[in-house]
């Protein structure tokens, strides 16, 4: 049986193309499972997973928990605000305390880039990165590519534009790695103030005009503006941001083709996309959420099979 080349899922950049294909094939199977009347399989009855979230999350946490439960794993949840970590306990101590209760796998979200890599070097458990600062969010990128594959047949050769706050976005970074690995053409679009200066070194092109970007692409992945990560104001007002980088129905209709609209959520309706776009037939936002569970089941299953 094929297996992943890695023991942890720390980022897309640590995977190869075969890993992604294997995850997708496995997800195909689990997607069929979760659409059955009995959505649960007994596969991971002997596995205990801790979901450790040092940052707020609704959908990612829920999606992981559902994926774990549908595989029949035992699940414990731990949420900590940064302030409780500041009380003194280090990340290694926090996680080792949880692991001493015989936990096999850790799903972690953390505000610092590289936190998953750091943890994987210091604790004895399989680590899944559920988002680490502006570094990576690998399961989001996997489910995004999986959704494109599902909608358009394949990712290879497709034109994808990622729009918005690229500077603070782990979703953008993981998506760029995943899409490039699968042979897609990638552009990024947004204000220059939210564009990393060296972004083109990742093999993507920068387009500052949204209309041109949309005319070029097959898929537009709209990112949320992450006000909470900004130390200063990178643009004057959200109103002005929306005027330049928001997608609305009339803009979509002005294009000479029908493009696919994606969004990793949560949506700021009226900022990066308007409601009529989010709820339109061109949007696959809810399919992304559904696929998220199948993808996470696949990742957990494949990593669990490497434990021991």
């Amino acid at each position: 049986m094929s297996e992943l080349s890695v023991n942890h899922l720390l980022g897309i950049k640590y995977l190869n193309k075969q890993d992604i294909e294997l995850i997708f094939e496995t997800a195909d199977h689990f997607k069929e499972v979760i659409n059955r009347s009995i959505k649960k399989v007994p596969t991971l009855r002997d596995i205990t997973i801790a979901n450790i979230f040092f940052e707020n999350s609704t959908r990612t946490k829920l999606s992981f928990e559902l994926a774990e439960k549908r595989l029949s794993a035992d699940v414990v949840n731990f949420s900590a605000s940064q302030s409780s970590v500041k009380k003194g306990e280090t990340l290694i101590d926090t996680v080792n305390n949880i692991l001493s209760m015989k936990v096999d796998m850790v799903v972690m979200r953390h505000p610092n880039p590289g936190a998953g890599v750091f943890l994987s070097k210091h604790v004895d458990a399989s680590i899944i990165n559920a988002g680490d600062g502006a570094h990576e969010h690998p399961t989001q990128a996997l489910l995004d590519s999986y959704s494109i594959r599902e909608k358009l047949g394949s990712v290879k050769g497709k034109n994808i534009v990622i729009v918005g706050d690229i500077l603070h976005s782990r979703v953008a970074l993981s998506n760029i790695f995943a899409l490039k690995l699968q042979g897609a053409n990638v552009k990024v679009c947004g204000p220059k103030t939210l564009m990393p200066k060296h972004i083109e070194s990742l093999g993507v092109q920068v387009e500052t005009n949204l209309k041109k970007a949309l005319e070029w692409c097959d898929v537009a992945n709209m990112l949320r503006v992450q006000n909470e990560r900004m130390d200063i104001s990178y643009f004057p007002t959200t109103r002005e941001y929306a005027q330049q980088f928001g997608v609305n129905k009339s803009l979509l209709e002005s294009l000479n083709k029908e493009i696919v609209i994606m969004h990793p959520g949560p949506i700021n309706r009226g900022v990066e996309i308007t409601s009529d776009v989010a709820d339109s037939n061109q949007s696959i936002i809810l399919e992304q959420v559904e696929n998220g569970v199948a993808i996470r089941m696949a990742v957990i299953y494949l990593l669990a099979s490497k434990i021991k």
Partner: peptide
Amino acid sequence: RGKGNVDESEVSTRLGLKG
């Protein structure tokens, strides 16, 4: 410098670290 803690470069971009 702002909140940067490593050189702003293709490496900081790949790693999501503030440059």
